[in-house]
Amino acid sequence: MNKLEELKKSAGAAKSDGRQFVTFIIGEENYGVEVLKVQEIIGMTQIIHVPNSAEFMKGVINLRGAVVPVVDMRTRFRMPEREYDMFTVIIIVEVKNRMIGMIVDSVSDVVDISEATIQDTPHFTAKIETDFIKGIGQVENKLVIILDIDKILSTSDLERMAMEESRGGDD
């Protein structure tokens, strides 16, 4: 909770025509998710592996008594994996009343991005499927890829993928 609150404070008050986003880094790109969907940001903690799960499903963690599943976003976006270091964080988001954690390389800032500056994706050769992108925003000189969390962590998709992947697994 501390990290998120710190970030929010340093970002100052929200401007009325914009929305606030938590921005983070995966690989070389900056991504953002709406602040309202973010429950908290925690440092890397012990993840208990769950057998027979999809590759990007890293396992589950204990979040103050709740068992929360955690997804490795690099794997989800089919990027090569990377060792976790002291900057690696887990962003806990709420998707359809369920909590899920996203492992990202590091978190940047909570920023305001006004509606006006959010463009549609088309011309971008994004590294990830355009389905997952809500739009591209600009903050200072950086481009922030705004993610559609509901789609990326859609539980029906996850379930389907878990089934496919586990069939390929041993048993």
């Binding site: 208990i48 769950v50 057998p51 589950v60 963690i61 204990n62 068992v67 379930e159 878990a162 586990s166």
Partner: peptide, 26 residues
């Protein structure tokens, strides 16, 4: 604590629990 369906397809797991040391055990 229940494990949502999308986390794993294993029928051999029926849920999770939090141990005294804070770790999750399936």
């Amino acid at each position: 604590k229940s494990l949502e369906n999308y986390i794993t397809q294993s029928r051999a797991l029926s849920g999770a629990a939090i141990l005294g040391d804070g770790k999750v055990a399936l």
